[in-house]
Nucleic acid binder design. Structure first.
Length: 736
DNA sequence: CAGCCTCACTTTTTT
DNA sequence: AGTGAGGCTG
């Protein structure tokens, strides 16, 4: 038996060694999904079922692709560098670079990241004198991207009225602009690649014949276009086409808002007549009580393919639940608990503080900071998104492609060189009238604009010549120097960190050249431009890690979304309140609510040993106090695995007597007794923050009040019944 | 051209 | 409350 199959359970083995046909693996959280995927690849190669070149493995994130490569190279005595393992976008980029002519793209086409794309759209709107109130740039960006991600070009999009017709026109104008400038945005990479293969039969056949096995990770996150792309490469499921092996978990589908279609799982099963659907339900991560909570929560969803996690690890600890007065109290309690755990020898890095929305990190950070506990927040600016890095890259982009107007405008006057709005306006007019880009338009100016812009063009031209036979790192260094970027940040008192980042960019360039340039020699002239283009693509496609210093032992703070795929010994999940989690924007429709519940399921299944859930009666949000009910998700956890740390279970929902009793449980500090502040009195004895009962809507909390006497109205949060304004003269509210 | 002020926004995120 | 973008003034 193959060494690859040691320590693999029977279901995992079934998936790994499945015969060459279409397969769907429903892999529960912590069930060894990545392992199955990578081991199957290794197994296919080891058994001689497929050659390495015949395999295409697709992931969503660079991190996942990297991990797959690392694991694979540990399993196989092969150089896996030539293998087609990558993200959808990375693989499409690769394909388009190979066949740029057929795809009608310049050889050194640039990739616009989301921010570049928005800038390009704004520029377009300015050029065409579009009312940004009627057509907000963000909306337009969303519109364009979601059209492309559904596989639609402007002429495929329906328009019924003047407004939407105009919108489609702008979509078309935007495409023309991108084409003129030789740039593609993220969805364009996929769509362009898809259309290329669809249109060009020999090319399509080539790849359809070449790839015998297509393996897809996180299949539940695929959007329409990605599914179409996979289908095309797999010859639509024809007998002689590639075999699709998709791994995913419908219960962890949490990206509907960005176009993911869980329905692709069922569509795949149906359209490819998938015979083998394998469920990986043994969980190797969490203790039994935690899994019981997760299973019970997700069981409330109707739209499921069905799965039940189990473990051999035993029950472990119950789920700890804490009710706080306020968000501040909640944060303070969490920090005390963290301190206790660290005192007991727990590593800070094994503790995670999770929340539904980023705004919640502030209170937590504040308390952690006061307590002097090192922490790290995920989700800030990433390396290649920093302004100084984008500036340096913009110079490099202009060297590679002078038609890139986005890059041009970014640095034409940075560092400032006396090119003002007037000069640029003149230039944009000239460029528009001449039907050229800005760079080319500069030659047709006169007067002062001609002088200042001529100097800028001369700078770029000079750079292009000087840089010609340099290594990538030297090139970057030279550009940072000659553009004046370094001097600019040196003169800036607060430029120190930016200078360090620019140095880091040099490192990145050197590393990149070492890793990617080795197959073709770097000093072989003529390939410098290609290496530069690859580096620029890399910078767009892989913006870098969110985390800063991975080395230090710090408590980890992140949203539940960011935590997907990660695991921690101890997880604190805070803000379990109706309106927050589930989020109020999602409560109204069942699909939204089910996605929130999947999010909750993801959060719970991050914990290995211990899980804390907490919520607060009062929370500051957007500068206002909000009064929320406890999340329904808390209710969905079986009582048998709950352990309440705050005074009395459910105190706030059914009267507040319990609050003034001392805390219970060895791990929890005594609750600080504090009466909720009445915001306004004399509303028939009702006050904000109070629990009330309504004959039709049931239990709720008063969240706001206005008016007096016969006009007095209160706003009541009834949880799943919604938030309602009720006139006291009409509605019968009784204190609960 | 730069700094200041007002205004609007505020779920989740990768490529 | 806090931030970021865009507009206006010195």
């Amino acid at each position: 038996m193959s060494r690859l199959l040691a320590d693999v359970n029977s279901e995992q083995r079934r998936a790994i060694t499945m015969a060459a046909r279409h397969g769907l693996v429903l892999a529960g959280a912590g069930s060894g999904k990545t392992r199955v995927l990578t081991t199957r690849i290794a197994w296919l190669i080891e058994q001689g079922v497929a050659a390495p070149q015949a395999i295409l493995a697709v992931t969503f994130t660079n991190k996942a692709a990297r991990e797959m490569r690392i694991r694979l190279s540990a399993m196989l005595p092969l150089d896996i560098r030539g293998m087609w393992i990558g993200t959808f976008h990375g693989l499409c980029n690769r394909l388009l670079r190979f066949h740029n002519k057929d795809a009608n793209l310049p050889q050194l086409f640039q990739i616009l990241d989301t921010a570049d794309q928005l800038a390009a759209i704004k520029r377009l709107q300015k050029r065409l004198d579009i009312d940004v109130d009627r057509y907000p740039p963000r909306d337009l960006q969303n519109f364009i991207n979601s059209a492309k991600e559904t596989g639609l070009r402007p002429h495929d999009v329906d328009a019924w009225d003047e407004w939407s017709r105009r919108r489609v026109e702008l979509f078309a104008e935007y495409e023309a602009q991108c084409q003129r400038e030789g740039v593609v945005d993220f969805p364009e990479l996929l769509l362009r690649c898809y259309e290329l293969l669809q249109r060009n039969e020999p090319l399509r056949r080539h790849y359809q014949v070449r790839f015998r096995h297509i393996l897809v990770d996180e299949f539940q996150d695929t959007n329409r276009l990605q599914y179409l792309w996979l289908k095309l490469l797999a010859s639509d499921g024809a007998a002689d086409g590639a075999k699709l092996f998709c791994v995913g978990d419908d219960d962890q589908s949490i990206y509907r808002f960005r176009g993911a279609e869980v329905g692709n799982m069922r569509a795949f099963e149906r359209e490819f007549q998938v015979e083998e659907v394998i469920r990986l339900e043994q969980n190797y991560r969490s203790c039994g009580h935690i899994l019981a909570a997760a299973n019970a929560i997700i069981a409330n969803n109707r739209e499921r393919l069905g799965k039940q996690l189990w473990t051999e690890r035993g029950h472990g600890e119950p789920v700890r639940i804490y009710e706080a007065f306020s968000d501040t109290d909640e944060a303070r309690w969490i920090v005390e608990e963290v301190q206790a755990l660290v005192r007991d020898g727990m590593l800070r890095a094994d503790l995670a503080l999770l929340y539904r929305s980023n705004a919640q990190s502030r209170v937590l950070e504040h308390q952690l900071f006061s307590a002097g506990i090192p922490y790290r927040v995920y989700g800030g600016l990433r390396f290649f998104e920093r302004q100084e890095i984008k500036h340096a890259l913009a110079y490099l982009r202009l060297i590679a492609n002078p038609d890139d107007d986005t890059a041009f405008l970014r640095v034409v006057n940075f560092p400032t060189r006396g090119i003002g709005a007037r000069s640029l306006e003149r230039l944009q007019d000239v460029a528009r009238d001449g039907g050229t880009g800005l760079y080319a338009g500069a030659a047709r100016l006169d007067g002062k604009p001609a002088k200042v812009l001529g100097a800028f063009v001369a700078l770029i031209e000079g750079l292009r010549v000087e840089v010609q036979s340099m290594s990538l790192a030297d090139m970057v260094e030279h550009v940072i120097e000659r553009s004046g970027l370094r001097a600019h940040y040196q003169a800036d008192r607060e430029g120190q960190e930016r200078l360090e980042n620019l140095d880091e960019l040099l490192n990145a360039a050197a590393n990149f050249a070492a890793e990617h340039g080795s197959s073709r020699s770097i000093d072989e002239s003529g390939d410098d431009a290609a290496t530069l283009a690859e580096f620029l693509a890399h910078a767009s496609l892989e913006a870098g890690d969110h985390q800063a210093d991975a080395g230090t032992d710090a408590v980890q703070l992140m949203t539940v979304h960011s935590a997907k795929g990660l695991e921690f010994d101890v997880v604190f999940l805070s803000g379990l309140e109706e309106g927050l989690f589930p989020h109020e924007n999602s409560i109204m429709e069942s699909e939204g609510l089910e996605e929130e519940r999947r999010l909750m399921y993801v959060a719970v299944t991050r914990a290995r040993e211990r899980l804390y859930l907490s919520f607060a009666q009062t929370r500051m949000l957007h500068g206002q106090s909000r009064y929320n009910l406890r999340s329904r998700f808390v209710e969905e956890i079986p009582q048998s695995v709950q352990k309440w740390l705050s005074p009395i279970k459910g105190a706030s929902q059914f009267g507040r007597a319990g609050y003034f009793q001392p805390g219970a449980g060895a791990t929890s500090p005594p609750a600080r007794a504090r009466a909720p502040e009445p915001v306004r009195r004399d509303l028939d004895g009702l006050q904000v923050g109070q629990n009330v009962r309504h004959a039709r809507f049931g239990l709720g909390v008063i969240v706001a009040a206005e008016g007096s006497g016969a006009d007095a109205r209160v706003q009541v949060n009834f949880g799943r019944q919604g938030v309602k304004w009720l006139a006291l003269a009409i509605a019968k509210l009784t204190p609960a």
